[in-house]
């Protein structure tokens, strides 16, 4: 076995170890790489910055525990951005597993900023059927959600007296772990004309560009990097910024793997060809 062949048959656990170190070391010893803000995040922030005291936004927690490392920093940053400015929040989730996550974040942020449930914010909870829920909200919030997440009739919740349809909210901010932000843009934005901005996992973010360029989603946060950029703009460093050094080093390592893997592949292929030629 040649050196390159041995290199190609390396135990996968050695690769795993390198990945773990590439993530752990920068977390322990931060390198302080500067975070540059992209145009799409700037646009997202512009929409949020335009909100005024008393405005109501809809914040949708369209994700579960699987992608919370990417999306939690966004949801937390949005609440840190709007609550101190007196913007009210109508929150909901289109994922059954999103209920617990939304409850935790809303409760923690409300405690920090002294917000009252039912007056400054409400959590409507989960409804089955994404598209049906999005369209029905366009006709009536209270009929779509007869109760909030805690079984309280929405007719008796103060903030819900101000919200009947999408006309009564300034924008929808969808923090989504799947194509949900696209669906908000299609059904809430397309049919009812409400403004939709989004926070997406990195995998999903690459699919948002056509909506962004067409103005259907006028701003979005892509992955943990997007969260870090937004944290920088609102001057609230959080999990996003803290993770950026590790993200950079891990990406560099991945590229080294691709490069070394290709070098090994081409040299071992050349060695094999030469062997065949020699017979």
């Amino acid at each position: 076995m040649t050196f390159f062949e041995r290199m190609m048959s390396i135990d996968r656990r050695i690769i795993f170890l390198f990945v773990a170190l590439a993530v752990a070391i920068p977390l322990l010893r931060p390198l302080g790489f500067p975070v540059q803000v992209s145009e799409e995040v700037r646009s997202f922030h512009k929409e949020m910055a335009a909100l005024e005291e008393g405005d109501i936004i809809m914040l949708t927690f369209d994700y579960e525990g699987d992608v919370m490392a990417e999306l939690d920093p966004m949801a937390i940053a949005v609440l840190k951005d709007v609550f101190p400015r007196g913007v009210k929040v109508v929150a909901l989730t289109t994922y059954a597993g999103g209920t617990g996550i939304a409850e935790n974040h809303l409760r923690e942020a409300a405690e920090v900023y002294g917000k009252t449930y039912g007056v400054d914010y409400v959590f409507l909870g989960y409804n089955p059927d994404w598209s049906g829920t999005i369209l029905r909200l366009g006709e009536s919030f209270k009929k779509t959600y007869p109760t909030d997440q805690y079984g309280k009739n929405t007719n008796d919740i103060p903030i819900m007296q101000e919200v009947e349809t999408y006309d009564d909210i300034e924008l929808i901010c969808s923090i989504a772990g799947s194509a949900l932000s696209e669906y908000w843009a299609i059904w809430a934005g397309g049919r009812y004309g409400v403004k939709v901005i989004s926070g997406n996992t990195a995998i999903q973010a690459v699919l948002i560009y056509p909506y962004y360029q067409a103005g259907q989603i006028p701003g979005f946060l892509g992955g943990l990097k997007g969260a870090a950029e937004y944290e920088k703009l609102i001057d609230e460093p959080g999990m996003g910024i803290r993770g950026m050094d590790a993200q950079s080093i891990a990406h560099a390592l991945m590229l080294v793997f691709i490069l070394v893997g290709n070098i090994g592949y081409f040299f071992s292929r050349r060695a094999k060809r030469e062997e065949l030629r020699k017979g």
């Binding site: 690769i15 795993f16 390198f18 993530v23 793997f257 691709i258 070394v260 893997g261 290709n262």
Partner: peptide, 14 residues
């Protein structure tokens, strides 16, 4: 993340 790294090393060929 670990398996993507492993796949990048073994299968991502130009």
């Amino acid at each position: 993340a670990f398996y993507v790294a492993s796949a990048s090393y073994r299968a991502f060929r130009a």
